[in-house]
Simulated assay, not measured.
Amino acid sequence: MSLLRQSVFLLLLFTQPVWAEVFIVASETSPVLERLAAALKVHTPTEVTVSLFTGGIPGNADDHYFLVGEDVIRAWPEGTAAVAVLTSRSAIEANRSHLVGAVYLEPPLARQYSLVRYMFGDARTSLIYTQDVLPWAWPELSALEEQGVRLVRYQPGQSLNYALKDALRGSDVLLGISDSGVYNPQSIKNILISAYRQNIPLVGPARAYIRAGAIASTYSSLDDIARRMADMLKPGQFQEFSYNPYFSVAFNEQVARSLNVMLPETEMEVVSELKK
């Protein structure tokens, strides 16, 4: 090999871009995290590893860290840039100083209400909330109220049935919110029975409630989350707290038939409309 060719070879060898690694850090591994890592690899050339958090930080300062779960976020050392994923917004807000960015797990209320409007037009809509959602959720709630959604506050010490009765009175749709003080495994059956006795559907508050009996909800799949994570790896995008702009829609066809609600022909049709 001539001296010139050797020089060109060495120049190319040492000027190739070196991609930082990506670590998805959690307190324990799971098939969900492995699928998330596999989905992220489709959208980025970087190496993606699921790592158990034991107090130390894997990799080096040039790597990117996505944290899963409040316990990991709370223990993560400040000063090491990290973004939260697959974690509730309430947990993120409580530990915001440990993060430089986040992809909220929940769907935005504005999108959920857009789904209500798409499915039910100008239907009278009510929403039950507790003080636990304040202060960070209040701007979203206020925006819904300005659009005509009736907000019913579930007071401490008050019976949920009382707030539920108030919310259902004069309403056509109940819009759920990710507020564990209202929607939880102990309360959801009572909420659904009370609503459906009056032929009032529940939209949201998350995909997990579709199987329980909610008629519809938007949500971000693992591929949706991976796409957003890949976006955040681009220059200038890592430090951002936001809802996921990529999402899907789920329906409960059995509930729709019971309530005589006509569902859209395809989920993609709804997603396209909600993105407008």
Rank of each mutant, 00 (worst) to 15 (best):
A110Y: 05
A102C: 10
V182S: 06
A256I: 07
Y154F: 14
V48F: 01
H98Y: 12
S248A: 14
P31I: 02
P201Y: 07
G213S: 07
F23A: 06
T49D: 02
L127G: 03
V18C: 11
L274M: 09
E267S: 10
L115F: 14
V203T: 11
I210T: 05
L222W: 01
V22R: 05
V100T: 15
E70S: 13
S178Q: 11
P107D: 14
D231H: 15
D179F: 12
E106I: 07
I73N: 05
N190I: 10
L141K: 07
L127N: 04
L259K: 11
S2T: 14
M232E: 00
Q131P: 00
Y196R: 12
K189C: 02
F241S: 03
Q112R: 12
A226C: 07
T218Y: 01
L141V: 09
K165S: 15
S2A: 12
P205L: 08
S194G: 00
S242M: 03
I225V: 15
A75Q: 11
E269R: 14
Q254G: 06
Y209S: 02
H64L: 14
K275T: 04
E106L: 03
Y209V: 01
V182H: 09
G236A: 09
T218H: 02
Y118W: 05
L86Q: 09
Y243M: 10
A216E: 12
G59N: 10
F53P: 01
D179M: 13
T54A: 13
P245R: 00
V42Q: 08
E265G: 04
G121Y: 01
G121R: 03
L33W: 08
R257T: 00
A250G: 12
I57N: 00
S7T: 13
K276C: 01
K276W: 04
S221M: 08
A81I: 00
